[in-house]
């Protein structure tokens, strides 16, 4: 159930892995008033998946992943505002653009380790935030960028007021991202990322091009983050400064940890629980909300490193042990 990949792990789908998709579809029919929130959750799950790839599998600790999410979001916004409001082209360009930014920055920063790397990731997203803030001609600065109406997808499906199209649009791309990440996790490439995370000295000694592999994983992850950002822009038809900076990176990291790191579905559970709770609690008691999240984070780190899914796994193991 941990989906840690490797050479003995069985890559076939378990029945329970279809559950998230069933729930997502169920939600579409049963809770139509939640669809805008649902779309947001779906994009954040894509974003969390991309983060899981670098943090959970490759072991690159980053505080700056919002740089790529934001890059995708702004590219999509600028493209829609200036060039064309065709959604799929915009999505493709944003994904590639964020991936390129990931490649460029990854090549540069992944030579370092530890505090320097942490700092560099933070500096990059701060730099992007400052850039978006100051380049008002392109980004609208603090006001953000909006006022564009995205065309129907493939000329067929109009983005409706209730967010039905948007929800399915996000769901399709989440499905694709999930499929990609899952394949990668179970592949030799994924196994080698785990190897690098566990012991990079040894990976170097068996002749693995460690640096190149980190750069590639970082680039793929950045592209996925960009895809998520672009989806957010297109479905909300707006992009503002909140898509960049340390706060979003930190929050995303919190969601991922909450769900469980390095196990694929932690990236599903974390954002879902976090954002639902936030929607419910944060409006009424913002202070308590932040306090609670901080508290949970501290407790998770101190006591339950595996997050929610880790607890579930431990519970199942215990139950099995008891019934055996």
């Amino acid at each position: 159930m941990t989906h840690s990949g490797g050479y003995v792990a069985d890559p076939r789908f378990r029945a329970i892995e279809w559950l998230p998709w069933l729930l997502a579809l169920l939600c579409f029919f049963v809770a139509p008033s939640y669809l805008p929130l649902g779309s947001y959750v779906l994009t954040m799950i894509i974003f969390a998946l991309s983060l899981d790839l670098v943090v959970g599998y490759a072991g690159i600790i980053t505080l700056g992943h919002s740089a790529y999410f934001g890059a995708g979001a702004y590219i999509a916004g600028i493209f829609a505002a200036r060039v064309s409001t065709e959604p799929l082209t915009g999505l493709a360009i944003s994904t590639v653009g964020a991936g390129l930014l990931g490649l460029l920055t990854g090549v540069v920063i992944l030579r370092t380790r530890g505090l320097a790397l942490l700092m560099l990731t933070l500096a990059i997203t701060s730099l992007c935030l400052e850039f978006a803030n100051k380049a008002t001609g392109w980004t609208g600065g603090a006001d953000g960028l909006g006022g564009f109406a995205i065309q129907p997808i493939l000329g067929l499906f109009k983005f409706d007021l209730f967010g039905k199209t948007a929800y399915l649009y996000c769901l399709v791309f989440l499905f694709a991202s999930w499929w990609l990440v899952r394949r990668m996790v179970y592949s030799p490439f994924g196994a080698s990322l785990t190897g690098i995370r566990e012991n990079d000295v040894r990976m170097n000694a068996v002749g693995a091009p460690v640096y190149m592999r980190l750069v590639v994983s970082y680039t793929i992850s950045a592209a996925l983050a960009g895809l998520a950002g672009a989806l957010l822009t297109q479905t909300t038809q707006y992009v503002g400064l909140k898509v960049l900076g340390f706060e979003l990176s930190g929050e995303l990291l919190v969601m991922l940890i909450l769900g469980g790191i390095g196990r694929i579905y932690g990236a599903f559970v974390g954002p879902l629980v976090y954002l639902l709770a936030q929607d419910y609690l944060a409006k009424q008691f913002p202070e308590y909300w932040y306090f609670g999240i901080g508290m949970i984070l501290v407790l998770v780190v101190m006591f339950v490193r595996g997050g929610i899914l880790g607890i579930v796994d431990a519970g199942i193991a215990k139950w099995r042990g008891a019934s055996a």
Partner: peptide, 10 residues
């Protein structure tokens, strides 16, 4: 990192 982010939130 996570622990100290938690402290910041609180």
């Amino acid at each position: 990192v996570l622990f100290t982010i938690g402290l910041i939130f609180m």
